[in-house]
Computed example of a mutant assay.
Amino acid sequence: MAEVMEQVPAYDVPFQGRMGQIIEKAVQVSLESFVSLASQSAPDGAPVGVGVSAARDLGQAEARNGRPVDALLAAYRVGSRAAWRELSVEAIAVGVDAATLGRFAELVFTYIDELSAASVAGHNRETSSTERERIVHLDRLARGLLTGVGEVELEAAAAAARWTPPRTLTAVMVPRHRLVRTVGVLDPRTLSLAEDLPGSVDTHSTLLVPDSGGRARQRLLALLDGHDAAVGPARPWTRAHESYERAVRGIGLRDGVVDTDALLPELVLQADPAALADLRAAALAPFDEVTDGAADRLADTLRAWLLLQGRRELVAETLHVHPQTVRYRMNQVRDLYGERLNDPDEVLAILLALGRTP
């Protein structure tokens, strides 16, 4: 144990507490098991008994404590050299012949190999079991975040998943077949959910990216460049469902990366398509009195007139027409609408109706 502590950095502090007791017991049991094995004329391949069981338990204990299996294997190598150095000195001192000493050496290192393999198996079993359990908890956490469960429940889920909550989360919707590729360019703490949620888009998967608000948002958008994605707003992590709902509504608004923060007016207008259709029918009803072609020209002119605050030269430049044409068209519009253009509420309704073409 002293040799291991000196040569293996992962064990360079004195063994103490429960873990120290486990390691010391494993060393003692392994040596006793070896002595028992070596004292009998066992055939090749005889079981090494309790030593293997102790080594497997040690591998599991090391995994639970977060130590890599490489450190344990290094400790076995150092320990076996130290043990053989002392054993060989004693064997030579009592006159053991060379052939017997050779077989003894083979037994020592075969035994160490079996202990190493048992520890690796124990470490892998514990690691895979722990990781599977953590994946289940992360999936449960992601579902809770996206469906908007309570804060207390979310904090418990985060603790069970051993996931440290960030300040904010940003929902990113990506086509399902691009999920793995997109996850690879994002923060390792990113949560993902490939399966459907009630009301979700079945062609897309959801990612929750930590701390990507403010100036960090531009870095996120740059990372996503070249990936089809709809990006919701950054929200406090317990309100990630708000970002998810916005990102879902952003799917398909543009090609490539859809930044919903840059498309708020369009998102507002499409939030209730039926209401928008009714608003458009009522607000644009006066255009029913002219032909379709004339209605389109007059609607474009009215929209530009309202947006540019009646500056005729700018309206003409925007529409690529002569200012006199703008004057003529607006006279027609006033004839159709009458006093409605003097009512702020009517003007707002008209502008909203003209704000997005069907």
Rank of each mutant, 00 (worst) to 15 (best):
residue 324 Q to L: 10
residue 83 A to E: 03
residue 342 N to V: 00
residue 326 V to K: 06
residue 148 G to I: 02
residue 246 R to D: 04
residue 121 A to V: 05
residue 192 S to T: 13
residue 337 Y to C: 03
residue 338 G to R: 10
residue 6 E to Q: 13
residue 331 N to T: 11
residue 343 D to P: 09
residue 354 L to F: 08
residue 204 H to G: 01
residue 198 P to Y: 05
residue 165 P to W: 00
residue 190 T to C: 09
residue 146 L to K: 02
residue 350 I to D: 06
residue 161 A to P: 07
residue 30 S to L: 08
residue 60 Q to L: 14
residue 29 V to P: 02
residue 81 R to G: 03
residue 40 Q to T: 10
residue 343 D to N: 15
residue 194 A to C: 07
residue 281 A to F: 05
residue 44 D to E: 12
residue 15 F to D: 01
residue 252 G to D: 08
residue 181 R to I: 08
residue 216 A to H: 05
residue 56 R to H: 14
residue 224 L to E: 02
residue 217 R to I: 06
residue 60 Q to H: 12
residue 141 L to R: 06
residue 180 V to S: 11
residue 113 D to Y: 11
residue 263 L to V: 08
residue 170 T to R: 07
residue 189 R to F: 01
residue 307 L to N: 05
residue 339 E to V: 14
residue 69 V to W: 06
residue 192 S to E: 12
residue 117 A to W: 08
residue 297 R to N: 10
residue 269 L to F: 10
residue 124 N to I: 07
residue 70 D to Y: 02
residue 114 E to G: 06
residue 117 A to E: 14
residue 321 V to A: 09
residue 44 D to V: 08
residue 20 G to S: 05
residue 271 A to R: 13
residue 125 R to L: 12
residue 226 G to N: 09
residue 35 V to Q: 07
residue 220 L to G: 04
residue 299 A to E: 15
residue 303 R to M: 02
residue 74 A to N: 11
residue 346 E to W: 07
residue 303 R to A: 11
residue 171 A to F: 02
residue 54 A to Q: 02
residue 165 P to M: 00
residue 162 R to W: 04
residue 122 G to L: 05
residue 170 T to P: 08
residue 130 T to H: 09
residue 82 A to R: 07
residue 111 Y to V: 03
residue 128 S to L: 15
residue 103 R to E: 11
residue 227 H to L: 10
residue 69 V to I: 15
residue 116 S to C: 13
residue 233 P to L: 10
residue 304 A to C: 06
residue 169 L to C: 03
residue 118 A to C: 08
residue 149 V to Y: 01
residue 322 H to S: 13
residue 271 A to H: 13
residue 86 E to Q: 13
residue 337 Y to Q: 06
residue 123 H to D: 05
residue 113 D to L: 13
residue 3 E to W: 04
residue 304 A to I: 03
residue 96 V to Q: 04
residue 116 S to L: 06
residue 33 S to F: 06
residue 168 T to V: 09
residue 43 P to G: 06
residue 65 N to Q: 14
residue 9 P to C: 14
residue 156 A to P: 00
residue 120 V to Q: 12
residue 62 E to F: 04
residue 226 G to P: 04
residue 194 A to N: 08
residue 142 A to E: 05
residue 6 E to W: 05
residue 70 D to R: 13
residue 286 P to T: 09
residue 239 R to S: 10
residue 106 E to T: 14
residue 114 E to P: 00
residue 22 I to S: 02
residue 221 L to S: 04
residue 265 P to T: 11
residue 35 V to K: 09
residue 165 P to F: 01
residue 49 G to M: 07
residue 53 S to G: 10
residue 134 R to E: 05
residue 50 V to H: 11
residue 193 L to H: 14
residue 47 P to L: 02
residue 253 L to K: 07
residue 288 D to F: 07
residue 212 S to M: 14
residue 64 R to V: 06
residue 322 H to K: 15
residue 218 Q to H: 14
residue 59 G to P: 02
residue 124 N to H: 13
residue 138 L to S: 03
residue 199 G to A: 08
residue 351 L to F: 03
residue 143 R to I: 13
residue 264 L to H: 01
residue 141 L to F: 09
residue 261 D to R: 11
residue 48 V to Q: 12
residue 339 E to D: 15
residue 306 L to D: 02
residue 22 I to K: 10
